[in-house]
C-alpha cells in the first residue's frame, strides 16, 4: 500500500525580508495534504538545491518579493544540474514583470505566480504537475 505524499520545499534566497507569502503558502500546502519544508530566509541557492536533494522533494517553490526571481531560480537550477538532478520540479511566486514571467517559463518552471494570484492556483498547479486529481 503506497502512502506517497507530495513533498514541497518553499525556498527563500538572498536579501529579501518579505516572508508573509512563504508563510501563507506553508499553511495552504499543508492543508492541501502536502508535506512542506521551509528553508527560512536568506539562504543560498546551492544550500537550497542540496537540501532539496537530501529531502528528496518533488517540488521547489521559490518565493521572492525583491524582483530577483529570475536570478534565484536560474542559480538553483544550475546547482541542481551540477548535481545531476533533473527530476525536481520548480515553481515560483512573488514580484515579477511580464518579461520575468516569460523567462521563468522558458527556464522550465511549471508555474509562475505573480502577486495577487489566488493560493488555490498554486495548489492546483502542483496537483496537475504531480498528476493527482
Amino acid at each position: 500500500m503506497s502512502d506517497r505524499k507530495v513533498k514541497v520545499m518553499i525556498a527563500k534566497c538572498g536579501c529579501d525580508i518579505h516572508e508573509r507569502g512563504a508563510l501563507t503558502m506553508l499553511n495552504v500546502f499543508r492543508d492541501a495534504g502536502f508535506e512542506v519544508i521551509y528553508t527560512g530566509r536568506y539562504q543560498s541557492e546551492e544550500g537550497v538545491a542540496k537540501a532539496a536533494v537530501d529531502e528528496d522533494v518533488d517540488i521547489i517553490a521559490v518565493s521572492d518579493l525583491s524582483g530577483s526571481l529570475v536570478i534565484i531560480c536560474r542559480k538553483i537550477l544550475a546547482a541542481l544540474a551540477e548535481m545531476g538532478v533533473d527530476d525536481i520540479k520548480m515553481m515560483c511566486g512573488g514580484l515579477l514583470s511580464e518579461q520575468d514571467e516569460k523567462d521563468l517559463y522558458d527556464m522550465g518552471l511549471f508555474a509562475v505566480m505573480g502577486t495577487g494570484s489566488p493560493v488555490q492556483a498554486s495548489v492546483d498547479a502542483i496537483k496537475e504537475v504531480m498528476g493527482i486529481e
Binding site: 505524499k5 506553508l26 499553511n27 500546502f29 499543508r30 492543508d31 492541501a32 495534504g33 502536502f34 508535506e35 512542506v36 519544508i37 521551509y38 528553508t39 527560512g40 539562504q43 544550500g47 537540501a51 529531502e55
Partner: peptide, 13 residues
C-alpha cells in the same frame, strides 16, 4: 489532511 509542515530544518538550514 495528512499534510505536514516540517519546520525543524529551518533552524538547521
Amino acid at each position: 489532511t495528512g499534510g505536514a509542515f516540517l519546520g525543524d530544518r529551518i533552524r538547521m538550514f
